[in-house]
Each structure stands twice: as structure tokens, then as C-alpha cells.
Amino acid sequence: MTSILLEVKNLRKEFGGVIAVKDCSFNVKENQIIALIGPNGAGKTTMFNMITGYIQPTKGKIIYQEKEITRYAPQKRVKIGFSRTFQQVKIFQNMTILENMLVAMKNNEVPWATIFSPQKVKVQEEENTAKAKELLKMVKLEGKENKLAKNLSYGQQKLLEIVRAVAVECTLLLLDEPAAGVNLTMLKTIKELLLTLKKKGLTILFIEHNMEFVMDIADTVVVMDYGEEIAVGTPKEIRKNKRVIEAYLGT
């Protein structure tokens, strides 16, 4: 029996006069891969920003593990198991790839940690480095640890952002268009990564325009249009859904 991890209830977001999300509800079941799809401007990113706490909904509720978290700050959501990436890549450009990873991992972060307990910090750092290298290997970024992140290609930067989000120990991983601007080989890499993470018990919610990618790995697809969810179902059901074909998939 799979229980519900995240519940989005009648979320609405108005920006001045613009209604970005009108009234959107859906559930995310534990240990599933859920895709959020829909035309440009449908309100997908806005939904993501509300779920992760970057913007406050005008109306509606967000429930996570049976607790209402609608007003939680983004950092507090990270503490209870959220991790996310952004539609526009956000990596630490002038830091190395390894540093990018290490920032995401837990270590003693009081300023005088290296003065009063250097040994403990060092041991943790070594452990984290090993773990980071393992993750980087999964997206074929091994051997580049000491390169500045800005020297990576766009696709590689996307991969780095994804594994960095994975490095935050999370229960729910949210990815905004992970496959955008990424070549076919890398696409395969991301697919494999997401399936591996699912096996490890993660729940993944992602936004994507690449239909092949969505149909390949999603357990459930949520389709949005004009700020509302117009269909929820398995990839097969969604492909046959008349409203979805009209609004998004075309013929």
C-alpha cells in the first residue's frame, strides 16, 4: 500500500491581476515518479515555487506527511525532506564542482568548527567528498571535481544541479525541467539516475516538456493548463485523454 506523501489542495496564485495558478489540486504518492506537464505559461513553475515555499499561495493548502506546511519557509521544508532544482540553472559558478556538492551536504557549520574540532570536520569532509564523488560519477562528472562550475557545458551544469539537489538528504525531490537543453546521451543518464533514486526510496516530482522522457519514467502524470490540473493519470491514460490532446499534446 502506498500512502500519500504530498497533497496540494486548491492552490491559487495571483500576481497582481495575473492569475498564474487558478485552482490546482493533486496528490503525490510515496516512492513514485510524478510528472507535471502542460503548455508554456500553464503555471507549473509557479506551482513548484509554492510547493517549495519560494512564493506564498493566495489560497489553498499544502500538506506533507499529514502536516500542513503552507506557510513554512523554504529552508524549513528542506529540513523536513524537500530538495529542488530550478528551471534556470542555479549553481555556484565561481566554486568548484566538488565545493558545489559539499555545500549541499551536512557538516559542522559553526564558524569556529575548524578551530575547535578540526579533526571531526575533516573526517566528515572526507566522508562527504567520497559520497559526492559517487554521485558525480552517476552523471559522468567524475574527474572534474576541481573545475570551476562555470567552465562546464550547459548540460553538465544541469546535471550538477540535479546531483547537488540529490546530495541534500531528501525524501521528495522536485526538478523543474531537468531534461531541457540536455543532449540524448545525458538524457539517458538522467533517466537512469531518477530510476536509481526511486529504487532507493525517493519520491520525485518533475516538470518536463519532453514527452518521451515523461512517458518513459513517470508513474503518474499531472497535466496543467491555464492554472488548473486538467487530467491526472498513468502515462497511457494521459496519452488517450481528449482534453490533454486538445490542450497540449496535439495529434
Binding site: F86, K90, Q93, M95
Partner: peptide, 14 residues
């Protein structure tokens, strides 16, 4: 340094 580079990304890491 991460905060200097990208505050929003730093927030996303908690």
C-alpha cells in the same frame, strides 16, 4: 561563498 554566488540556490540547500 555559496551565498555570494547565488542566494536562492543556497536557500534551496536549506
Amino acid at each position: 561563498k555559496a551565498i555570494r554566488e547565488d542566494e536562492i540556490a543556497a536557500i534551496s540547500l536549506g
